[in-house]
Amino acid sequence: MSVIFQKPKSLADVQTHYCPGCTHGIIHRLVAEVIDEMNIEGTTVGISPVGCSVMAYEYFNCDMIEAPHGRAPAVATGVKRADPELFVFTYQGDGDLAAIGTNETIHAAARGENITVIFVNNTIYGMTGGQMAPTTIPGQITQTTPYGRDPKTNGFPLKVCEIISQIDGTAFAQRVAVDSVPHIKEAKKAIRKAFENQKEKRGFSIVEVLSSCPTNWGMTPSEALKRIREEMIPYYPLGIFKDTDVWNK
């Protein structure tokens, strides 16, 4: 008998603080698997955001920096410019990346920074208890949209991959989901690609991962995955929005 699947080496052997069924853990694992496969743990620096994944620095075994809310792409820029040989990734939620940190995200992309951004979109603010996010879908009930998000008063959601793919400095933008085994395998491939792009210095790479929040959606973990399939994917279609080489084309 030989082991064919186990916890990746670059993840700490601790229980995470995430709620049962929260798919942050799956995305952590995919990032760590890619780090292991590329054998880059010793040369990787991760940036954790403010939000549920703030404590990601406790879980990844590579060097980790905790950034102010929304500023992870700026912090990542500082690290990458200080040492361009490091692999630098940010791990950010929807509030962090697409509300308070929109400016930092868009300009890191515009500069074609050779960094990898893992964008976890679960259409809600998790850590603060389930308020409207910039990606909350029209009609979705949250603590701050108790009657459902009404675009007339709350505006429309931001479609991040669609926006980022319009920027010249973006090398790679793909939206994936972690609601099923085939989608998870697809997500892993996208994350791998986003890290490989750093090695090849192709420009800014972002992987948007449609993720669940059973607790704040008021659903079981299984129902939450169903919501990703039935409500989120139709609104946020999966696929590669951009794949190019900004610096060597």
């Binding site: 500023r71 500082g78 868009i106």
Partner: peptide
């Protein structure tokens, strides 16, 4: 590097300083 804002600039400093 000319940053997109003062906020980004100080956070780039945070990153570079973290990198030593």
């Amino acid at each position: 590097l000319q940053a997109e804002s003062e906020i980004a600039a100080i956070n780039m400093v945070l990153g570079a300083s973290s990198a030593g």
